[in-house]
Design a binder for these strands. Structure first.
Lengths: 123, 123
DNA sequence: GACGCCGGTAACCGCAACGTAACCGAGGCG
DNA sequence: CGCCTCGGTTACGTTGCGGTTACCGGCGTC
């Protein structure tokens, strides 16, 4: 475990959560980002995604596994240890994801300004 | 009106509707694609999106207008004529959208294959 | 006078996604 | 014995997106 995951990667105030882009279901993109550098355990993923219930996180992970984006490896130990890791196919998503994030970094201020203008015009 | 819109751009069997990427709400990306070459009228947009009700299309267009992606121009005529057009900000979305579509074109077969494998393993 | 066109709006509704709370089993530990 | 950890599962409630249906005004047309 080289790097612990940040505690609040997904603060709703974070502008990256206001992008018009979405990957898979609501949390899938965040899972992929968390796995980018190294495999992670279930409870490890729950730290930065503390707004997500175990149930929803499980569903998200199953969907990603089904689509070949990640692998699930259960080690036969007690207490149980399960590791999720990106597949090569999962890694191919990053260039497109990065293009989306670059768009957001560059243009989100303009979107927020447009929203303010619209609200002011309506009022 | 140089080019009529294709009749079934959004066939659910079309692989581009199976991508994990989504832009804005469910139909927003499709509206942007329809406006790429030229402005379009409301009923003109309804042709390729015949699966979308007027209400939902209106909501989608309002959201895009609010965010500064498109403009809405109502001409004071009878019968009414309303034209929707991309703004420069809206056009900035295309490079990222194209990256997403390129990913789909390249990797969707692998996703579908992964799904088949998963279904076979579960059964 | 009835009907149609255009670009919607209003009221209602179903369902899937999302969330919450309780519970589980196998083993270690006190 | 009782409680802890990990990685979930199950049952249940809620929320909100998307869809359906009905209706509108103003003018042209039959």
């Amino acid at each position: 475990m080289s790097e612990p995951l940040p505690r609040d990667l997904f603060d709703p105030a974070c502008p990256s959560n206001a992008t018009p882009f979405q990957i898979g279901d609501k949390w899938a993109g965040m899972v992929l980002v968390c796995l980018r550098d190294q495999p992670r355990r279930f409870t490890e993923l729950r730290v930065p995604m503390h707004r997500v219930s175990a149930k929803v996180l499980t569903e998200t992970l199953r969907a990603l596994e089904r689509d070949g984006m990640i692998t699930r490896t259960a080690h036969d130990e007690v207490p149980p240890r399960v590791e999720y890791a990106l597949t090569p196919l999962g890694r191919t998503l990053f260039p497109a994801m990065d293009a989306c994030r670059a768009w957001a970094a560059e243009h989100l201020p303009a979107v927020l300004e447009a929203r303010d203008d619209y609200a002011r015009r309506s009022a």
